Amino acid sequence: MMRTTLTIDDQIMALLKEKAHNSGKSLKQVVNEALSLGINHLEQPDSRVYSLQPASLGQPGSGLNLEKALELADEMENRAICDKLEQRK
């Protein structure tokens, strides 16, 4: 075993001390276990691939003008912004 000096953040040290107290283990043992777990995780990171299955929403119904819907959405957003600005006065 090798002795060394480390600078550990106060929050991490508090967590390590709490873990040692709750487990009945020495601080030295808890620190070594935490370092071992961390090193093993770095060597074998989770490499799960995220995938998303697309779903078709279908075609818009006949007679719907999507351009008009976008204009309406823009107008409603503009009104909401104006209302918020008015409330700040």
Rank of each mutant, 00 (worst) to 15 (best):
I39F: 01
E71A: 15
S36P: 00
G58E: 10
V49D: 03
S36W: 03
N40A: 03
S62G: 12
S62Q: 14
H41N: 01
N40L: 02
P45L: 07
V49F: 08
A55W: 12
G58Y: 11
E67N: 15
K68H: 13
E43D: 04
A55E: 07
P45F: 05
S51R: 00
A69I: 15
E43W: 03
S51N: 00
G58L: 10
S56P: 11
G61K: 14
G38F: 05
S62F: 11
S56I: 07
H41Y: 03
P45Y: 07
E71M: 12
L37G: 00
L70P: 03
Q44A: 10
A55V: 06
A55S: 06
L66E: 08
S47L: 12
G61V: 13
L42E: 04
D46Y: 09
N40D: 01
S47C: 07
Q44N: 09
D46F: 12
Q53W: 09
G38S: 04
V49L: 04
N65R: 10
E43I: 00
P54I: 03
R48Y: 04
L37P: 00
P45I: 01
I39M: 05
Q44G: 06
S56C: 10
G58S: 09
G38D: 00
R48G: 06
Q53H: 02
S51F: 00
L57N: 09
S62V: 08
V49C: 08
N40E: 02
P60Q: 06
L57M: 10
K68F: 08
S62K: 15
E67P: 03
A55I: 11
E71T: 15
P54T: 08
L42H: 02
S51L: 00
Q44M: 05
A55C: 01
V49A: 10
S47M: 15
A55T: 09
G38V: 01
G63S: 10
Q59Y: 13
D46G: 01
E71I: 14
L66Q: 07
N65W: 09
L37H: 04
Y50G: 06
E67A: 14
I39W: 00
S47T: 13
